[in-house]
Computed example of a mutant assay.
Amino acid sequence: MGAVVQIEELTQGYGSNPIIEGLSIDIDHGVIGLLGPNGAGKTTLLRTLATVLPPKSGHLSLFGHELKRDADVRAVRRHLGYLPQDFGYYPGFSVYEFVRYCAWLRKIPGRQAHKATMDALEAVDLGNKARTKMKALSGGMLRRAGIAQAIIGDVRLVLLDEPTVGLDPEQRLEFRELTRRVSGDATVVLSTHLVEDVAAVCDRLLVMSKGTIVFSGTPQKLIGASVSGARGDTELERGYTSVLRGGEVGTR
């Protein structure tokens, strides 16, 4: 089975300002954690993978298909789930209506949409809030509704940008369990500043700095990259700060 995502010499940015230049990397099945400081290019990379931003140059393939035409993009979007840091919604929608609407956008057949919607809500423990208006949700519940719309239907790649923002410690533990369940059917790429969250659930970590992947490997490998005197409260945090300061590790 080939890589879920293949990126070759990707250049991406806004206007004349390049954020990512010459990035090449493959992403296989599993749970992938994307770490890096503010401005590293994490959100730009996720927006590119989500087909929100077409590459400035280079090649992007999802599920073995290079995205060359609008038809290619439309085809892969049916199997993409994306939760940006700030997602839009109609405040007057109920939680059910919001997720059901996202099912429609993903072209889930009407006869399957109700069950798919309720399955997604139950997965994030919002089944009992189906009739609650979106505007009445707490920050944590709103985030969980966003995760529900990202995992609904036949998704093969789920992209989560800071998914644990607004979640309390118990909800973060529940999110980890949810991620493990979702990863049985889909590849999950999650971006976060919370290093310990990704360590608990991810098969592979990518560390970005200035638009480049400076580390690719397992959480244990990142721990092993720690150097004497590195900052951090845990071994993993010290490994993380070490690779940001030091040399690159192979990204293929």
Rank of each mutant, 00 (worst) to 15 (best):
F87E: 12
E8W: 01
M208G: 07
D119T: 04
V124P: 10
P84Y: 04
G22F: 00
L160D: 12
A113C: 12
I7Q: 09
A40E: 11
R69Y: 12
G224E: 15
V158T: 03
G39C: 04
G92M: 01
E8H: 14
G81L: 12
T187R: 06
G217L: 05
A116P: 01
S16Y: 02
Y14N: 07
V249H: 12
V207N: 06
A75W: 11
H114C: 03
T44C: 08
V227W: 05
Q171N: 02
S242C: 11
L121G: 02
V207R: 02
D154A: 08
L206T: 01
S242F: 07
G33H: 07
L142C: 02
D185E: 15
P37L: 10
L67V: 09
G184P: 02
A40P: 08
G153P: 12
P55Y: 08
Q112R: 07
N128Y: 03
Y90E: 15
A136F: 00
V195W: 10
K210V: 01
T11V: 10
R143G: 12
A200W: 03
D203C: 02
S216I: 00
A199S: 04
Q220E: 15
L244M: 04
A225Y: 08
S191K: 06
A50P: 01
I25Y: 03
R252P: 11
L222A: 12
I27M: 14
G88Q: 09
P18I: 01
V99A: 11
K107M: 10
I20D: 11
R176S: 05
M1I: 07
S16G: 11
D154G: 08
I32M: 07
M134Y: 05
D197Q: 10
P84N: 02
E196V: 06
V195D: 11
T132Y: 00
V214Y: 09
G127F: 02
T187P: 13
A130Q: 09
L190N: 09
G217Y: 10
S24M: 05
E21S: 10
V249E: 12
G211N: 12
G81H: 04
I19F: 01
I7D: 10
G166Y: 00
D119V: 04
